[in-house]
């Protein structure tokens, strides 16, 4: 839900430029997986700030709770136990949620004008009042993030606390993080901060440490510092090179104008055929022959 209205970069299902004269700083949230202790304070803060309360689930023998993102759980800690070297267990804890892509697949797929917007600060926000509940955003998202609520059939996901950011505050999750694993600021500053963290991690023996800011989606406004940036899949299947699916790109790319034009042209061809040759009538003589 938005408090901002004039600093919009992209609007779903809209073919004219959105209001975009205001230039805001591109923001980003940096999630340093190496500093995360899995306390879930960010999950609690997200619920608290956004007034969402998920149903109480059941324990499935793993720490992930709730077990998946839902319309009422916009961020979930994903716990992965990996053993890259024998007898050296690593507990990789990734805070999952919307990545706020620079090239958002959800927005590309959305058929409802204004239901998804991208602010010029990079935040991708759902405006549920315009959502029609078709679920195309789910098909469009390369990270499997949006969820349709069973209560109201509207799509929900992390807003990056656009309401807080709009008035100069950091997202609720960042505010609550006790270890500094979550930081928020301009994207440029976050990249710089991440670079320092990567140097530190490399010194500590994580030779493949790196920043996750996938170029396939134009970069993201939620980024990760990963100990094993060469294998993001280790972190509960974080995609290595995410991009908008070619099927979605085709469906919401060239086919839209081409097929619309095709339909129009066929109808127009019929009309002009009629104007040129006139109707196909049975000749008068053959009508009268019968009498």
């Amino acid at each position: 839900m938005a408090l901002q209205s004039l600093d919009i970069q992209r609007v779903s299902a809209t073919t004219t430029p959105p209001p975009g004269v205001r230039q805001t700083i591109e923001v980003a949230k940096l999630i340093d997986v190496s500093k995360c202790i899995g306390c879930k304070a960010c999950q609690a803060a997200c619920m608290e700030w956004n007034d969402i309360r998920d149903e109480i689930g059941s324990n499935a023998g793993i720490y992930d709770n709730p077990r998946d993102l839902t319309a009422d759980s916009w961020t979930v800690m994903r716990f992965s136990e990996v053993e890259l070297e024998k007898d050296k267990l690593e507990w990789l804890i990734r805070k999952d949620g919307c990545m706020h892509c620079a090239d958002p697949g959800c927005l590309k797929a959305c058929p409802a004008p204004g239901a998804i917007v991208q602010y010029s600060n990079g935040i991708v926000d759902f405006h549920e009042e315009a959502c029609i509940g078709c679920g195309y955003c789910i098909a469009g998202c390369p990270f499997n993030v949006p969820r349709i609520s069973k209560k109201d059939n509207k799509a929900y996901k992390c807003t990056l606390c656009s309401d807080r950011v709009g008035v100069g505050m950091e997202p609720a999750c960042v505010k609550s993080c006790p270890t500094g694993a979550l930081v928020f600021g301009s994207k440029a500053d976050m990249i710089e901060h991440a670079a320092e963290r990567v140097v530190d991690l490399k010194e500590r023996g994580y030779s493949n440490a790196g920043l996750y800011d996938p170029k396939g989606v134009g970069g993201t406004h939620v980024m990760y510092v990963l100990q094993h940036a060469d294998q993001p899949e280790l972190y509960h299947g974080l995609p290595k090179d995410p991009s908008i699916s070619p099927m979605v790109a085709l469906w919401k790319g060239v086919t839209k104008p081409l097929m619309s034009l095709g339909i129009g042209l066929v109808a127009l061809a019929g009309f002009f055929h009629f104007i040129k040759v006139g109707p196909n009538e049975v000749e008068e003589e053959s009508e009268s022959e019968l009498h």
Binding site: T15, A112, P113, I132
Partner: peptide, 17 residues
């Protein structure tokens, strides 16, 4: 639901949802 140019047609059915 296919092209924004036709979205107005959803009004014939009582809106997008």
């Amino acid at each position: 639901l296919f092209h924004p140019a036709f979205y107005f047609l959803s009004n014939l059915f009582g809106g997008g949802p």
